[in-house]
């Protein structure tokens, strides 16, 4: 059994944030939500870094804050994280600006829709039929959608009973 202490609890929080952020980056289709997930993964990494400098029973690294001779926590990870947070907000603003630009150009932020429109644009620029269109060569044409037999069978008696 893992002992319940400040370090283990914070460690669980840091790992949870990184994993949730990474999962969000993989699962989500919307660019804005991916940005939020990225910010969370970043926060988790920052927390993990600060945690590596934590010492049991030590106080904040300020001289004269506690009793003289008391152990102080490692200040180095704190310095790194301090700047990383501020850099993070700058990078976030840059990402937001890029998102605004993408939205202006394509009118959507959904990854699937974005990909479709970009492919269509590339195909149009190259002068060939867009993938998935009816003019594509036979081998590259998408298969017709499979009819939903379940729905057909279920809806048929209903219509009969209504008539």
């Amino acid at each position: 059994m893992i002992p319940l202490s400040l370090e283990t609890v914070s460690y669980a929080g840091a790992i949870g944030l990184v994993v949730i952020g990474g999962l969000g980056l993989v699962i989500c289709n919307h660019l804005f939500r991916m940005l939020l997930a990225l910010a969370m993964a970043e926060s988790g990494a920052n927390l993990l870094l600060v945690l590596t400098g934590f010492r049991d029973g030590a106080i904040a690294p300020i001289i004269g804050y506690g009793p003289a001779g008391a152990p102080l926590v490692d200040p180095l990870p704190q310095v790194l994280v301090l700047t990383a947070i501020v850099i993070g907000v700058g990078v976030q603003a840059l990402a937001v600006a890029v998102l605004v630009r993408v939205y202006r150009s394509y009118g959507t932020l959904d990854m699937r829709e974005l990909r479709r429109r970009m492919e269509g644009e590339i195909a149009a620029a190259a002068g060939i039929a867009a993938p998935g269109s009816a003019q594509a060569p036979l081998g590259q044409r998408p298969l017709p959608p499979v009819p939903d037999y379940e729905l057909v069978r279920r809806s048929a008696p209903v219509r009969e009973r209504g008539a």
Binding site: L6, V50, I59, I85, V89, Q92, V96
Partner: peptide
């Protein structure tokens, strides 16, 4: 961060993570 004895980082995170970053995202 305050519990982990990192007051400097806590101050930054409170100003950035809970304030400025939210404002930037809301404006976006």
């Amino acid at each position: 961060y305050v519990l982990l004895q990192a007051p400097d980082v806590a101050m930054t995170e409170a100003a950035v993570g809970a304030g400025l970053s939210g404002v930037i995202l809301a404006l976006a």
